[in-house]
Simulated scan of single mutants.
Amino acid sequence: MADIDIHASRDEAAAAHAAECTCGEVNEDLPEINVQTIPHAIRHAAIFGAIDALAPGGGLIISAGHAPLPLLAQMDMRYGKKVTTSYLEQGPEAWRILIRAVA
């Protein structure tokens, strides 16, 4: 069984992983999540899980077929100034939003 390391913060855990990771993969592009592919009942929770997994300075893009105003309001309540959002595309058929964890 693998060892489990306990870190004092997410920043410390991310730094430890970056120093120890030997997978050879490099994230050159930001992952993009088409939120319409996630079942509605778990959609926001799945997006929050993805945001929680971001390293400081990391980001992802979400795309939707409508303006995700309820999600953005929930994100503001949950994360406050810990994440930033900016529209990459604003309809009328597609909305794409860059979400970045503040470093």
Rank of each mutant, 00 (worst) to 15 (best):
A64S: 11
D29F: 10
V83F: 02
P56I: 04
E28D: 15
H44S: 10
L72I: 03
I51E: 04
R100D: 11
Y79H: 03
T84W: 04
H17R: 11
A53W: 06
K82T: 11
H40S: 14
R78Q: 13
A55V: 02
L72M: 01
A53P: 14
I6C: 00
Y79V: 07
H66R: 14
M1Y: 11
P92V: 00
P68S: 02
Q90V: 07
I4D: 00
L60G: 01
L30T: 02
G57F: 04
I4R: 05
E93I: 12
L30S: 02
I51D: 10
A16F: 03
A101D: 13
P39E: 00
D5K: 02
N34V: 12
Y79I: 02
I62N: 01
H17K: 13
N34H: 14
A101R: 14
A15H: 06
V83G: 01
K82H: 10
T84S: 12
T22H: 15
I62F: 06
A14K: 10
T85R: 11
V102R: 03
H40P: 12
C23P: 05
L69N: 12
A55Y: 08
R78V: 07
V83R: 04
A101M: 10
D11M: 04
E32N: 07
H17D: 12
P39H: 06
D29K: 11
A18Y: 07
E32G: 05
A67I: 09
S63Q: 02
Q74P: 13
T84F: 07
W95C: 02
A19V: 00
M1R: 15
A101K: 15
H40I: 09
M75I: 02
F48W: 04
A94L: 15
I61W: 06
G57T: 03
A64H: 13
I33G: 00
A53R: 11
C23G: 01
S63V: 11
D11H: 05
G91C: 05
P31H: 01
A103F: 09
E32F: 04
L98W: 11
C21Q: 09
A19K: 09
L71N: 06
R10K: 14
D5N: 04
L54S: 03
L30D: 08
A55C: 06
I97V: 07
E32D: 05
I47M: 06
I62Y: 04
F48N: 10
L72K: 01
G65E: 02
E28P: 14
T22Y: 13
